[in-house]
């Protein structure tokens, strides 16, 4: 490999985000958790938040947030991250607080916590990774599992008669008065990655300016548990998932409610 800075191409255009720890991650090949970690790290760097950030890691593939994002992190029981984050933010209002949660964590066991953190307008940000399955535990049905999608607990495909419908969290939370920002993005194309970064920036700006609760839902692949090659998994996101889970901004408060 030629040493960087060689004559001709010496201006670094893309380097690792400072807040992304320089280690190999445990994520499966092509898993979008890695992409989303990079976006979060880039946005932390952008607003120089690293030394005042406290992350809340949930239970699931993303629990190792503290190995990958170079900030203080507290680990939360499964689904409770928005409550733990509330406890951190209420005790340290000057700190930047975010949670990083999967769909099993946020949309199943943690629905009450995220709904009430949003409804209280807690001034914190939620990064919500929706890959329509429980990744860490081996691919069981999640609340966002698509109808007809086979998982280890819907071996014949999810059937609404017995398993209900995939839940759209970004829209659901956008209906709460306390929610300042709710959007759904994806990272399956370079253009989507750029737009996703804008949404996370927006969410972080909301918190920095005290506007209240912000959430960015990411449609994400889980190649291993979907039994797909990473590139095919991205097609699934671009196809049926984006149809059922439309991308966009569902709520964006213009200015904070003032007493």
């Amino acid at each position: 490999m030629s040493a960087p800075g060689k004559v001709g191409f010496s201006k670094a255009v893309y380097t690792r985000p400072r807040s992304l720890v320089d280690v190999k991650s445990h994520f499966c090949p092509g898993c979008h958790h890695g992409t989303i970690h990079k976006i979060v790290a880039e946005c932390i760097d952008r607003y120089d938040l690293r030394e005042k950030t406290i992350g809340v890691a949930c239970v699931g593939c993303s629990v190792f947030l503290y190995d990958y994002i170079d900030v203080d992190v507290v680990e939360s029981p499964h689904g409770r991250a928005p409550a733990v984050a509330t406890g951190v933010k209420r005790a340290q209002p000057d700190k930047f607080v975010f949670t990083y949660q999967g769909d099993g964590d946020l949309a199943a066991i943690g629905t009450s916590e995220v709904i009430h953190a949003a409804n209280r307008g807690e001034n914190l940000s939620v990064i919500f990774v929706n890959n329509t399955t429980y990744g860490m535990t081996g691919g069981q049905m999640a609340p966002t599992t698509m109808l007809g999608q086979k998982t280890s607990t819907t071996p014949y495909g999810r059937d609404f008669r017995s398993d209900g419908y995939p839940i759209r969290m970004a829209e659901l939370l956008s209906g709460l008065e306390g929610t300042a920002y709710s959007a759904r993005v994806a990272v399956s194309t370079p253009a989507q990655i750029r737009k996703a970064k804008e949404s996370v920036r927006k969410a972080f700006e909301m918190q920095i300016s005290g506007m209240g609760f912000s959430i960015v839902e990411f449609l994400s692949t889980c190649p291993t548990n979907w039994g797909m090659k990473p590139l095919d998994a991205q097609k699934r996101v671009l196809g049926e998932m984006s149809e059922y889970f439309p991308l966009g901004v569902f709520k964006e408060r213009k200015q904070a409610d003032v007493a």
């Binding site: 809340v56 029981p77 409550a83 733990v84 406890g87 951190v88």
Partner: peptide, 8 residues
């Protein structure tokens, strides 16, 4: 869990 966060 809010307690956990403030204790942390």
């Amino acid at each position: 869990n809010i307690i956990l966060g403030t204790s942390a």
